[in-house]
Design a protein around this nucleic acid. Structure first.
Lengths: 256, 256
DNA sequence: CGCGATTTGTGCACGTCTTCACAAGCGCCT
DNA sequence: AGGCGCTTGTGAAGACGTGCACAAATCGCG
């Protein structure tokens, strides 16, 4: 039951968690593994093989093993991974041991939905404040939180240590909000506004854009339509895929 | 003003648009370029250089040129790209010339927000139907559309050709909805439910998971905190980044 | 105690993506 | 017409990510 201590893990740092400098692609998949692991834990599984976990997470088993190997050696050959231990390790690496405070700016259509999203509390986050620039929205109560004016951001930041800012404003306001977030010390931003943010070095920005996702799907749809229009060069070109389909964020064809 | 005809473009297909088999990474960035181009067009720009466009889209200029070169040669050396022409070409490649019909399943918290999202109409999509399994939600009118029961999916599909299905249900219902979508011929799915979907070959699934995005940010936050805790080995390790930061979906540090 | 079944962890080869650096091409000015 | 500056398009090299295939390690059983 070692709380969080790699026995002889690689990576030479002092005493602290010892960040193993994970590949970015691995980091992006760890949350996926974590979710699958929680599911397994809830259904009473004590251990899981790389094969089983990879199936649950929708990835290749070799990839999963390589990903996990970057965290250290937390598996037992011939047995598999201890579910509880692995959950603990991944949460540790992702920094989810502390419940991070999230400030959500923009309480419009999307902001409302995000404020009511239960995936926050369940996955290591806590909405610390709802903010909006529109005075008519200030004071509204959503999910037990009162909307405050965005200019109170400094006050909010003083009250508690904000880790992450979520921008759910129109594109026109996003840059200004980002600047305000950065000004109060936020160094991680999740941007739902369809625009590019410029931020100083050291600040991370991730973007989620619904329209972009749809357009990527549209491309594939367009491509598939063109393919079926052709007389299928070389056998069943549709059932046996051309073989360049699956990519970064696209899952495809996981059996029956 | 050639409507859509590559002069001597590579890629040997019959007469139709001639899909050049773009790299997936390029496809993922084209929508970004498209948005930047629309902004430029709205502000009166006739042409734009790769440098200018790449700055507006938040990417490297060489990458942008290589991406665009995959579409064909639509630039003029010494001048740049014709904004209107490039918009047309990208929309053509992405299959946005036809307004694709989107079926949105799950009209809960998030579904409401998506139904009200104006990025659909503006970017080549049209919500063809709102569906939900909850009878108490059926009949509700959102944004001019009436929510129908998910079992009517076949009827909806018969009425018009559904291109894309969006799943905004709880995770528990997502797989069943996906099956239903596939059953009526949908071959592209955008999944907001935090779970892995299994679909037959030839069906594309893209996933958007808020919690995952936050957890990835959490990791970087965690890492940055650990770094500042150290006595900064080797000069200003914080202002001069370790140099392995920027990745797939993460923009970082775009100057002042 | 040894053996076989099982599963992890990883070296290696391959493919994809990114970035640099520069030749080729275009327009403008003289 | 010729030259000059600017910008595209691309070859090549390097970084990164993926997946195979197998050795090393562990458990259970006879």
């Amino acid at each position: 039951m070692s709380q969080h201590r790699h026995p002889g893990a690689p990576g030479r740092a002092g005493a602290v968690p010892a960040l193993p400098d994970l590949p970015e692609a691995t980091v992006a998949r760890l949350p996926e593994y974590l979710r699958a692991l929680h599911n397994l834990a809830d259904t009473g599984h004590e251990t899981v093989s790389s094969e089983g976990l990879s199936a649950a997470a929708g990835v290749n088993s070799a990839k999963l093993r390589k990903d996990l190997s970057h965290l250290g050696s937390y598996g037992t050959r011939g047995v598999g991974y201890d579910v509880a231990l692995l959950i603990e390790q991944i949460e540790n690496v992702l920094g989810l041991t502390q419940r991070r405070a999230v400030a959500l700016v923009g309480v419009g259509n999307l902001g409302h939905a995000l404020a009511g999203y239960d995936g926050f509390a369940g996955r290591g986050f806590r909405i610390a404040a709802l903010l909006d620039a529109d005075p008519s929205r200030v004071g509204e109560e959503i999910n037990g939180l009162v909307v405050r004016h965005v200019d109170e951001l400094a006050t909010v930041a003083a009250e508690e240590s904000l880790a992450i800012g979520v921008i759910a404003t129109p594109a026109a306001a996003a840059q200004q909000v980002a600047d305000q977030l950065v000004a109060v010390g936020v160094t991680s931003i999740l941007n739902f506004a369809p625009c590019v943010l410029s931020v100083p070095e050291g600040v991370d920005v991730r973007k989620v854009d619904l329209a972009i996702e749809l357009q990527i799907l549209s491309f594939h749809e367009h491509r598939k339509a063109s393919l079926t229009a052709l007389p299928a060069t070389g056998g069943s070109a549709l059932t046996a895929l051309p073989g360049g389909f699956a990519a970064t964020d696209t899952q495809e064809a996981i059996g029956t």
